[in-house]
Structure formats: structure tokens, C-alpha cells
């Protein structure tokens, strides 16, 4: 039986059973794989090479060697970029529900979101993969002991696992959340959804205990928000400006 995360002298610690650690680690691996699969979908070379349809499928391991025949797709992309900021084609959101949740639109305007996605999705994807890889490393030892500086990384990875499971479980509203909860504690005969719901509930608990412990050690920085909002005439902030309760 797992124990909650608790603070130690240099970080946080929880005891997980071996099968729990393996389960979390393999979930991380699944999400990494899913995020990596987006690379093919979002590869700019696909579009750049489209016109003559002769993009060689012999994708050798090394990234586009220079001096290849005709026009290198990577170069075509680079040239398009040089042609001006407006030359950037918007990037369509991922088809997969989970990927769309992990790599969300940055604007309610689809075109603006597409342009932003073209510029930033790749690095966001990389950052999430890095978080999940770190989490897998941390899950290799028992008890799980996490230094202060990696705690947010582990917490983000747990959150991505929850977002993934929630998306697969069609959890989109408060009512859905209740349904998932009932599913998790319900019948003993488990189908796939009930199993996912149970794991989701477990990770929720684990993340909650981690961030409850982390919150206790956050320094109270009471003035930063007042400074930031001072020039924005935020009606809420200006009301109680100056003295936020210590």
C-alpha cells in the first residue's frame, strides 16, 4: 500500500509498491511515445516537400544531410521562414484527443492558435517529454525521494498522466468527474475504463499529497502581485492594494 508524499530535510518522499511504480513508469512511457508520434504529424518537411511529391521516404537516421539532391525540405522551410513572418503556415492541432489536451491551443482564434502552435508546440512537446523521462528515473528507486528542485517536474509529469487518463475517460465536466470516481470505487469486476478510473484516482491522490506538502514550503511573496497589477487598474487588486494578509 502506498503512503502519501511527506516533506523530508531535502525534499519529499513517498513509499510506493513495486507494481505501483512500474505502472506509473509504463504510463509515462506511453505518454512519451504518444508525444513523440506527434513529430511525424507536425513535421514541417511534410508540407514543404509536398509540391513535387518526391520526398524520399528513405529517412536515414541522421537529420537531413546537407548537399542532398534537389531542394532539401529543411532548407525550403528555412527559406519560407526567411520570406517573412507572415510566411509561417499555421500548424493544425493534433487529431488525437490526448495530444490536443497536452498541447492545447494558445488562442481562442483558430488561426492565431495555429501560428502560435507552429512556433512553440515543438518546444512544449520537448519539455513534456523531458518531464516524463525525469519522472521515470525517479520512479526507479524506493522509497521515491524527490529533491526540492525536481518536485515540480515530478508533479507536472503526474499531472500529464492525469490529463491523459482523463481524456481517454472522456472526463470533461464535474459530472464526468463523479462518474469516473464511481467507476473507480465501483464493481470489483474491472473493465478497461474502471481500471483506468482507478489509476486516475490513485494518481490524483498522489499528486494532491505532493502539492499539499509542497505548498507548505512555498515562501509567501505577498507583494509581487500588487506591483504587477498596479498599472493595470485591476478592480479586485486595487481594492485591497498594499496590504495582503500575511
Amino acid at each position: 500500500m502506498a503512503t502519501a508524499f511527506r516533506a523530508t530535510t531535502k525534499g519529499y518522499r513517498a513509499d510506493l509498491e513495486q507494481h505501483e511504480r512500474r505502472l506509473l513508469s509504463s504510463l509515462c512511457a506511453d505518454v512519451i511515445q504518444l508525444l513523440e508520434s506527434r513529430e511525424d504529424e507536425a513535421d514541417p518537411a511534410d508540407e514543404a516537400a509536398a509540391p513535387d511529391g518526391s520526398a524520399s521516404p528513405a529517412g536515414s537516421g541522421s537529420p537531413a544531410g546537407p548537399g542532398s539532391a534537389a531542394e532539401d525540405p529543411a532548407f525550403a522551410h528555412f527559406r519560407a521562414e526567411l520570406a517573412g513572418l507572415g510566411g509561417e503556415e499555421p500548424l493544425a492541432p493534433p487529431e488525437d484527443d490526448v495530444l490536443r489536451r497536452l498541447l492545447p491551443d494558445a488562442s481562442t482564434d483558430p488561426e492565431e492558435a495555429g501560428h502560435f502552435r507552429r512556433l512553440s508546440e515543438n518546444s512544449l512537446r520537448g519539455a513534456k517529454i523531458a518531464d516524463l523521462r525525469t519522472a521515470r528515473m525517479l520512479l526507479e528507486s524506493t522509497p521515491i525521494s524527490i529533491d526540492d528542485d525536481v518536485a515540480p517536474v515530478f508533479g507536472r509529469a503526474l499531472n500529464d498522466l492525469r490529463l491523459t487518463l482523463a481524456s481517454r475517460l472522456q472526463l470533461h465536466s464535474a459530472e464526468d468527474a463523479e462518474r469516473v470516481h464511481d467507476l473507480a470505487v465501483g464493481s470489483s469486476a474491472k473493465d478497461t475504463d474502471a481500471f483506468m478510473a482507478e489509476i486516475y484516482t490513485f494518481i490524483t491522490w498522489l499528486q494532491e499529497t505532493l502539492f499539499s506538502a509542497m505548498t507548505e514550503f512555498l515562501p509567501e511573496r505577498g507583494t509581487a502581485d500588487d506591483d504587477e497589477n498596479a498599472d493595470e487598474a485591476d478592480p479586485d487588486a486595487s481594492g485591497g492594494a498594499g496590504t495582503s494578509a500575511p
Binding site: A166, A177, F211, S212
Partner: peptide
Amino acid sequence: DPVNLMTYVSW
């Protein structure tokens, strides 16, 4: 959204 925890978002 119904997934992100209140503790987490505040943090």
C-alpha cells in the same frame, strides 16, 4: 477544467 487540482493550480 475538471482535472487540474485546486491545490495544484494555486501552487
